[in-house]
Design a protein around this nucleic acid. Structure first.
Lengths: 192, 192, 192, 192
DNA sequence: GATGAATGAGTGTTCATTCAT
DNA sequence: GATGAATGAACACTCATTCAT
């Protein structure tokens, strides 16, 4: 069962999306196709489940980080979120690129949206509760950060996956997010 | 020929990746499968060509924008790049999501990398030549901006595609890039 | 055990021949597949047994009716056989169409032949012992009646299943059989 | 194309319903599966088409015979219909039993009903126009004859298929139908 | 004796690709 | 150069049957 999850990732990573078929997954998992179909009604459902698990983990990570930084400064928050997200990604380094290949295969739109919405909400809440926070449109800012986070990291992917570059990526993203948030605060100040 | 390109995009948009087969593409293009195979050695090559066209256009856009802003301030540059990239994306609004679906299908890694590299180089050159520029690691900054640009926009995709939200996305991204660049400049100042 | 028989009929009636699989039968019968296979060596044997039961019942019905009408006139006999057969069929109205679907699935040829032979023999005996009987080829006539009986009723099937039409079918078949037998008797008379 | 029709019948006859799969049909027809699927959208459609062809031929036969015997006596009509139907069946001796196996596989109900209805209507018209005809309920009688014809012959099937027995079967059925019709006419006379 | 998870051969169907016309 | 019928390998999925518990 978990073996099937694991096998799906492995096959996807090593053989690619085109060679990802139920027989191969089953063989790699050390079971028969029949067994696979006893646990998942069809291929789509399996891929969906794998996606779901990964995305839920990412959203959890961000939520926990945000919850743990209520009352902190926005700079601290930005650093914490970037760090947590990157760590989560790197912990599943092999899975991640594979999943981006699945995502399109069938309608993960809903799934992704829900993950993004959870993260956006968590970040928004954290920004609202920041010790030094004050933003005109907290929701918009949260959306922007989420998009940048979820989008930029995969774009960085091959670089990010090696520890050294991961650290560098974290530094740059943190600087970017921090300066963006500060700019938005200053924006308010300027408006006043 | 261009009809085939066009048809590929259309089929992908309307029927999805799963129903994207050569017969359908040929029919939509108003030619026979045989004809299709006279222009492209195989399906992969066709998809590759379609991808290539789109990515080359994006890289061209960024290069032109960078070339056109040599000597400008980094703030002007940031705004110009964001604006140009978004405009290019929105001009091909229908194509874009379709292509992200293709990208995984076959090894577009190389193709994407080359596009990203072209853009990174162009941005790097522009930053070096900026009237107010001075950065410790211009290349790293250019990489970060490119990743954020190429990654964040698709993540924003469904929002970005409507003109109104497109404008908002542009504003936020511009703010983010500007503040990031300024922060990096200040970083140098602080180091001194 | 009887539950399995019952379940087979039910599944066949409600889900159709294509969805008739051992797992479904077992579940409907409230037992496990394993249990099913402890009573029947394979699916074929199960279907065979179900068929057998039904056909044996039909043959029994005809035999009993024939035995009970030894010495009666051929007209009485004809009426009695038609009535008995129709009653037996209608008593198992739901089963009957289902079984005709099974029949082809596996070699029920032998089974059906044996049933038909039993019925033919019973009818032949009854005709020979009829108070007013005298036929040139009793066996041929018995065969014809059996074929007409076993064949026509299913052909009538959807109509026959409603009581009203059942009565009408009975009337017509009785008339047909009676007049056929009388014609055969008259044939002998004419030959003399 | 006709080769596929032919192959379907052959496979059905020689290998049985259970071994009737598209691959086998294609191979026997001397084409590839792909070709088969270029002419028939799916297996069901193929079987349906084969059924349709056969049933339409039977209904045609009966209609033509009835049309050709307008104004004849009911006795002549009965003999003609039985003869024509048997000839049609025997001409396709191999097909016939095979098709009865298909019939149940999927919803041929409609198809069969339509054939039966066509035949019933033709017989009814012929009875109405018979030179010596006069029946209380022509439709009911036509229905009964159709059911007896369509039902009894297959029940006779293995016997009917050899010429000698075919002749005997024809004699008996003719006697049965003739006497049935005469009995119905007499019924009217008696009522008067 | 009962269970039901595991098996894997077998099925219907699709689709990239070829090649005779 | 254009065509599109033909191909057949490959896939998702089913289900009769087994066997360890």
């Amino acid at each position: 069962m978990d073996a099937i999850f694991e096998a799906t990732i492995q096959v996807l990573s090593s053989d690619g999306l085109l060679r990802l078929n139920t027989t191969r997954i089953a063989r790699r998992a050390g079971v028969s196709v029949g067994t696979l179909y006893q646990y998942f009604p069809n291929k789509q459902a399996l891929l969906f489940a794998v996606m779901d698990q990964h995305l839920a983990m990412l959203a959890d990570t961000i939520e926990k980080t945000c919850d743990g930084n209520l009352g902190a400064t926005v700079e601290t928050l930005a650093a914490a979120v970037v760090k947590a997200y990157l760590q989560a990604k790197m912990a599943q380094a092999e899975i991640s690129p594979a999943l981006y290949r699945i995502a399109s295969e069938l309608d993960a739109r809903e799934l992704i949206d829900s993950t993004v919405r959870r993260s956006t909400r968590a970040i928004e809440t954290a920004l609202s509760g920041a010790s030094d926070g004050r933003f005109v449109d907290t929701n918009l800012i949260a959306q922007t950060l989420t998009a940048a986070l979820y989008g930029t990291v995969p774009a960085f992917c091959h670089k990010v996956l090696s520890p050294a570059d991961g650290t560098e990526a974290e530094r740059q993203l943190t600087i970017m997010f921090r300066s963006y948030l500060v700019a938005q605060q200053r924006g308010i100040a300027e408006i006043r």
